[in-house]
Each structure stands twice: as structure tokens, then as C-alpha cells.
Amino acid sequence: MSSLTYPDHLKLVTLGLAKGQAPSEFGLDDSWAITDHSAVLGHGTECFSAAATRLTDWRAHEHAGVKVSREGLLVRLTFGPTMSPCLILHEESTPDRHVLVYGTLPGHVECGEEAFIIDLADSGEVTGRCVAFSQHSWWLARLGSPVAHAVQKWATRRYVEGMRPK
């Protein structure tokens, strides 16, 4: 399988960013865009379970217009005319936390990593979150950088909204 398109020392950095560590602690300078969006999805264990299912079966991605196919740890994300391969780096499922992290592979329009986190707080509040760091790797994305960043932020918000049980 192909290797990640970003430096090895950055593998799973999204989890550190989610814990509140500064990008500079990992060597992420201003050339990397950091995206972090979270929202309260609801309340209770039923909400948590449903949100985790929506992430696991890719409905959160579908909510953002991204079609997903998965074969083992390889994930192919199709958005518009692009197909972007990723490698699943981490999956975690506990009674109060569900996490999925994937990193980009050659051919992805971006270079970086994205983490999807669903937490069930002691209060019963369920929160969905998406944390990413990235650089444009596709020439068209680099050319239209402001538009590409806007699309990425839009998709991130849609991913989190897509975690919300219906």
C-alpha cells in the first residue's frame, strides 16, 4: 500500500490538536491549514450510538456530498470530479467516545490528516468534532486556494452536521 503524503512525524497529530495542543508543538507552521469544527449533536446514549453509527457507515460524509468506498483500511472519497484515497490510521470505540482518523495517500487533492470524534460527556451531552491539518496537493486547489479552503471548511461543518441523528 502507498505511503502517506505527509511526514511520518505528523501521523495522528489530529488527536493532539483535538486535545488542545498547539500546531507548533508538532512542527505545523503557517503552510498548514488547521480546520477544527465541533457541535452539540444531542443528548444521551441513544444519540451517541446513532451518531457513531452515522460516522461508521459514512452517512456523515454523504451529508457533505462525499461518496465513500472502503476496502480494509483503504478509503476512497469521491467529491465532484475528484477521487481522493486515504488510509485509516486509527479507529476507537468506547462507551463514551468514537474516533476515526485517516491520512491522505498519493492522488488525494489535499495532503494531511482528518480526525472525526464523537464524545459522550458525563452530563449526557453528545458532541461531534472534526479536526484536520492540510496543504493543497492538487494543482487546481493550489491555484484556487481561497476557494479550496472555503470548500474544506464547508465540508467539515457538513461532516459534523451529518453525525447528528435524524
Rank of each mutant, 00 (worst) to 15 (best):
G42I: 00
V75T: 07
L77N: 10
E113Q: 11
E46F: 02
V99R: 05
A51R: 00
A39P: 03
A60H: 11
C47H: 00
G44V: 04
E62V: 01
T82C: 10
V40K: 07
L100Y: 01
T45H: 11
G27C: 09
H108Y: 13
V66D: 06
E71G: 06
V66C: 12
F79P: 03
L41C: 00
L105H: 06
D30W: 13
D36M: 07
G27A: 09
S69E: 15
C111S: 15
G65Y: 04
L105M: 12
E91P: 04
H90M: 07
H63P: 04
D96K: 08
H61F: 14
G65S: 08
F79H: 13
H98R: 12
K67V: 04
G80W: 13
A64F: 02
G103F: 01
A33C: 09
D96A: 10
V109T: 12
V68G: 07
R97G: 06
T35L: 14
T56Q: 15
L55Q: 05
S38R: 10
H63R: 14
S38P: 02
L73Q: 11
A64N: 10
S38V: 01
E46Q: 13
G65W: 09
L74F: 05
G80F: 12
T78R: 14
G42C: 01
E113A: 07
C86A: 15
K67S: 15
G44M: 00
T94R: 00
L73C: 04
W32P: 08
R70G: 07
G27Y: 13
A50H: 02
R97L: 06
A51W: 03
L41M: 04
V66G: 05
E62Q: 13
R54P: 00
S38D: 11
L100P: 01
C86I: 09
E113I: 08
P95Y: 04
E46M: 05
A64P: 11
K67R: 15
D57W: 03
A51M: 01
F79R: 13
S31P: 08
F79K: 07
M83I: 15
C111E: 14
S93N: 13
G107I: 09
R59E: 05
D29P: 14
T35G: 14
L87W: 09
A51Q: 03
